[in-house]
């Protein structure tokens, strides 16, 4: 579905991604693992067109999307939930969600989407609709950003560290939501530091491990478990 071939991305003069190649298959959850600062978020930003790669090629469902601006990548059916969440603070929860629906133009029935998508996944947002986005708690903001991405009806969702800074109860809830998204047919590219959560989501999942801008290993959770000494070396933690 999504293929990265030898992409190299820079921030100014610093070379962040080195010949990164990976593939996301339709319907799976692909997890990117690695320590802080190894280029996981940069990989997502390169795909989204926020930090376009200097060389290499990114194809999504057969079309070349390398270097397209973010709004065009979004219109192809890819959505990004960034690490910093980025709820628009001066818009209400409802307006944040409307912003997510704009991409679908006239085809979308806003009320119906609210009822069938937003409230189904995130019943708690119902009471918050007219509150400003900036007034929500961290967990609620994370729910809102996932909901906002979801109402765009993406085929691929890229989620960057969704559980960062959340309390354990909410971490499990986010895990459940990701499972539900996959079950509903959304393909997921996940960056996550919580390895226990990230590797126990689904039968249909694989992981890549990054170090210093390179992809070092890949495989199913079972395969990684079998090679756990190598994995632990790259991640610096016990699996």
């Amino acid at each position: 579905m999504l293929v990265l071939e030898n992409i190299n991305t820079y921030y100014g003069y610093s070379h962040i991604l080195h010949d990164v190649s990976l593939e996301v298959k339709e319907g799976e959850i692909l997890v990117l693992l690695g320590r802080n600062g190894v280029g996981k978020s940069t990989t997502l930003k390169s795909i989204m067109g926020i930090q376009a790669p200097k060389t290499g090629k990114i194809t999504f469902e057969g079309s070349d999307i390398t270097g397209l601006p973010p709004f065009k990548v979004a219109r192809m059916g890819i959505s990004l939930i960034p690490e910093e969440r980025r709820v628009i603070p001066n818009l209400t929860v409802l307006e944040n969600l409307k912003l997510g629906m704009l991409i679908r133009g006239k085809e979308v029935n806003r009320e119906e989407t609210m009822e069938n998508v937003v409230f189904k996944y995130f019943p708690r947002l119902k009471e918050r609709l007219h509150q400003l986005g900036g007034s929500l708690s961290g967990g609620e903001q994370q729910m809102l950003t996932i909901a906002r991405a979801l109402v765009a009806n993406p085929r691929l969702m890229m989620i960057d560290e969704p559980t960062e800074g959340l309390m354990p109860l909410l971490v499990d809830e986010i895990g459940e939501i990701i499972k539900k998204l996959q079950a509903d047919g959304v393909t997921i590219l996940l960056v996550e530091q919580n390895y226990r959560l990230a590797l126990g989501l689904s039968e249909k999942q694989r992981a890549y491990i990054m170090e210093k801008g390179h992809i070092k290993m890949s495989g199913s959770p079972q395969e990684l478990q079998e090679r756990h000494e190598e994995v632990e070396h790259y991640l610096g933690v016990k699996l």
Binding site: M48, I50, P69, P70, F71, A74, R75, S79, L80, P82, R86, I88, P89, N90, L91, E95, K98, L99, G100, L102, I103, R148, A152
Partner: peptide, 25 residues
């Protein structure tokens, strides 16, 4: 209006609005 909403949103976080599929330029 939708356009007004986009303008208010882009005033705060233009990049995120772009990521959501709006041609902010």
């Amino acid at each position: 209006s939708d356009l007004g909403m986009i303008i208010r949103a882009a005033t705060r976080d233009s990049l995120m609005v772009n990521v959501l599929g709006v041609n902010t330029s």
